[in-house]
């Protein structure tokens, strides 16, 4: 396949210890890219090239990884957009949202807007690429899939429905090259008026019962789960019963 594929990666944080690691979804983006383009996959990170966690991506079988030098708290949108436009990429893969910083998940949307490319959310599989269009499977909630046909160049985010990333091997991770590039720096003004704090546990929602009388409260406290007023079909033939079920299933749109 001669399509140029680029994966954008970031530094992740372990969910419990907070240690830096390869980001889960970005690793899936790299995995998908490796499956599509093999060794021609180009991987880009905007940040600090001395970060050791980046080597975990190299350990997945990459020779080198381009790093656009950016200090912490910089707006990487512009430099990434310029980089992608100059690189002539056809398919750009990213994770859905970063594991550190704001993690708003806006970057792919803003990049697509800036480059004027179509964007697909939740890419699960690329079925075929030919003639400037890609036929892909998109992951939907509840394990469903949707087939889409998109014009290239294309920006796609992957989430947990994408293939599981391969393990990172230590030797290739050491041997790989982190190629730093000097680019312009734009400050992000977000943290001027917003601050990050350790996450507070969210208050658990209480079940408030608004009852006028004691009897109502008692009823609410002791009631069993019930739909209340469901339709009961007694003394019907199996035929009629099955028809009623099918009618409801079609109404709900689960019968395809």
């Amino acid at each position: 396949m001669s399509t140029k594929v680029i994966s954008l990666v970031s530094i992740g944080a372990h969910p419990s210890s907070g240690r830096t690691r390869r980001a889960e979804q970005d690793a899936r983006a790299v995995e998908l890219g490796l499956q599509l383009a093999g060794e021609h996959l180009q991987v880009v990170h905007a940040g600090d090239h001395r970060e050791e966690a980046l080597r975990a991506y190299l350990g997945m079988g990459l020779d080198h990884l381009d790093v656009l030098e950016q200090p912490a708290g910089a707006d990487v949108l512009g430099v990434l957009g310029d980089y992608l436009r100059d690189a002539g990429a056809q398919l750009v893969l990213t994770g859905s949202q970063a594991e550190t910083g704001e993690g708003s998940g806006m970057l792919p949307f803003l990049l697509a807007e800036q480059l004027g490319w179509p964007l697909i959310v939740g890419l699960a599989e690329v079925e075929s690429i030919d003639n400037g269009t890609a036929q892909v499977l998109q992951a939907l909630p509840r394990g469903q899939r949707r087939r889409l046909k998109v014009r290239l160049p294309l920006l796609a985010t992957v989430d947990n429905a994408a293939p599981t990333p391969r393990q990172s091997a230590f030797g290739p991770a050491r041997r790989g090259v982190l190629a730093a590039q000097d680019v312009a720096v734009v400050d992000d003004e977000l943290l001027a008026d917003a601050q990050l704090q350790p996450a507070r546990p969210r208050p658990k929602r209480l079940k408030v019962i608004k009852a006028k009388s004691g009897a109502d409260r008692m009823k609410a406290a002791t009631a069993k789960a019930s739909g209340g007023g469901g339709k009961v079909m007694k003394d019907v033939t199996a035929q009629e019963g099955a028809d009623a079920i099918v009618k409801l299933l079609v109404e709900e749109g689960v019968l395809r």
Binding site: G227, V232, A238, G241, A244, I245, L248, L255
Partner: peptide, 27 residues
């Protein structure tokens, strides 16, 4: 379960499942 259900069919499950397969095929 019938108190909880939105639609309940009282009857033999074997016959209803059989009829259901036919109804779905028809659909």
């Amino acid at each position: 379960m019938i108190k909880r259900a939105d639609l309940s069919i009282i009857g033999d499950s074997t016959a209803i499942l059989q009829a259901l397969i036919e109804a779905v095929e028809n659909f």
